[in-house]
């Protein structure tokens, strides 16, 4: 996967647990876990908006693009 999710790091910086964040942005804990563990295939803008609002960060703080070696 070329996109790496750093949700755990941002959550740690904001001292938010998975359960608390899931409740705050109104999504299930299993879905948030899928996102945190980099297993998600896509993310809705509404979810991203809620995450950024709750964690006080930019999308770039949560996601990082890592080019694949095969792309060269």
């Amino acid at each position: 996967m070329a996109i790496r999710v750093h949700l755990d790091r941002v959550m740690l910086e904001n001292r938010k647990s998975l359960t608390q964040l899931a409740q705050d942005i109104d999504i299930t804990m299993s879905n948030l876990s899928i996102l945190k563990n980099n297993r998600a295939k896509a993310i809705r803008f509404s979810t991203l908006d809620a995450l950024c609002k709750e964690l006080g960060c930019q999308p770039g703080d949560i996601f990082e693009y890592i080019p694949d070696e095969s792309d060269d």
């Binding site: 948030l32 899928i34 996102l35 896509a42 993310i43 809705r44 979810t47």
Partner: peptide, 8 residues
């Protein structure tokens, strides 16, 4: 379906 399931 799988893609839809893994869209958060």
């Amino acid at each position: 379906r799988e893609e839809s399931d893994f869209t958060i």
